[in-house]
Design a protein around this nucleic acid. Structure first.
Lengths: 184, 184
DNA sequence: ACCACCATGTAACAGGTTACATGATTAA
DNA sequence: TTAATCATGTAACCTGTTACATGGTGGT
């Protein structure tokens, strides 16, 4: 045991193991952490969390112990093992590959000829509104950050949001121009 | 038949139906079109294409006819039906919802404390290289575009790529600074 | 001689979602 | 009294991937 050099783990498994390096936690805790801290870029369904954790134990990447509670439901606390750390480490070290955006909006734009311009504009406006909301949330967060790495992910989100806002604004303008002067 | 007002279709089904509005095509054609024109934001495996097409026929969204060929394998040509157009239309009109980036790189950054700075820098550099390559490909494409909607998706890609390049550059700088002056 | 293109599919697996089910405690 | 929090899970489904299998045609 311990010599399982190249065991493959999924993104969710890696993220859970990552959180477990910060201490023993329950599935409930993990899911909340995921929603809060990293929630902008990773948020599995809770059923997924509860499905993955026992698998981590089975594969030797975590251990669990039951904690009996008085006025709360009992819970399982999970800890990362040496093997778990090793698996996480090699996942973290794998060069990440850039995947193109799989955004359905782009397909709707691409087939824009099939939609009324006003509907298309509404779609783009919605993206802009959501990106703007994200930007505000992230801007509110930024200065108060003690951990520098969380900061970097926040800045990533900000760059992304700003890019989307820029694109949406220019796209809206262009579509509106086409509404005003429809060249059939 | 025809009154199936709110039949749900998946992104891939919508995209295939969208391409079929441009004419009768085989699975092979569709997959190639997907790779070329829209390939930046949507690219299903061919096995998926061949799996989805018969389902579209079963559900009444497309019809197929076999074309016997002499010096080539026979093929199935698919056409979109009235029901197919209706289903596509309502998919296109659904307001798209912005999903946060699920980029694994962000998780690696978030747990940056567990990685050597040099590895982290390499990860970010790789993203920057790939985003730069994408930017070049898209810039080469842009002026020659006859269809205006394809153009809008290209510009989306460009904004995205530029944002990633900006973020990566500033992140690299910051990580390198930390390498030079490690504040324990 | 080799490789790319045309053309379609199967099998096995991976990784995820939503909805449902349960049930006590505590704060507004 | 109503809602949120704590706490875990099952069942059904969906969407997708990689690897394998087949085999002729046409260009370099």
């Amino acid at each position: 045991m311990g010599a399982r050099a190249t065991a493959h783990i999924s993104v969710t498994e890696a993220a859970l193991l990552g959180l477990l390096t910060r201490g023993e936690m329950s599935g409930y805790d993990l899911q909340r952490q995921a929603e809060r801290s990293g929630g902008f870029f990773w948020a599995p369904a809770k059923s997924r969390v509860y499905a993955v954790l026992p698998q981590l134990v089975t594969r030797g990447f975590a251990t669990s112990r039951e904690v009996v509670q008085e006025h709360r439901p009992n819970k399982q606390l999970y800890s990362i093992t040496r093997d778990g750390r090793a698996a996480l480490q090699s996942w973290l070290e794998e060069p990440p590959s850039m995947e193109p955006e799989r955004n359905p909006l782009l397909i709707k734009i691409y087939f824009g000829e099939l939609l009324e311009p006003s509907v298309l504009i509404a779609h783009v406006q919605k993206l802009r509104a959501e990106a703007t909301a994200l930007k505000h949330r992230l801007e509110a967060l930024e200065p108060s950050e003690s951990d520098p790495f969380g900061d970097l992910t926040v800045r990533h989100g900000l760059e992304w949001a700003r890019a989307m806002i820029r694109w949406a604004a220019s796209t809206e303008k262009e579509l509106e121009a086409r509404l005003a002067a429809p060249v059939h």
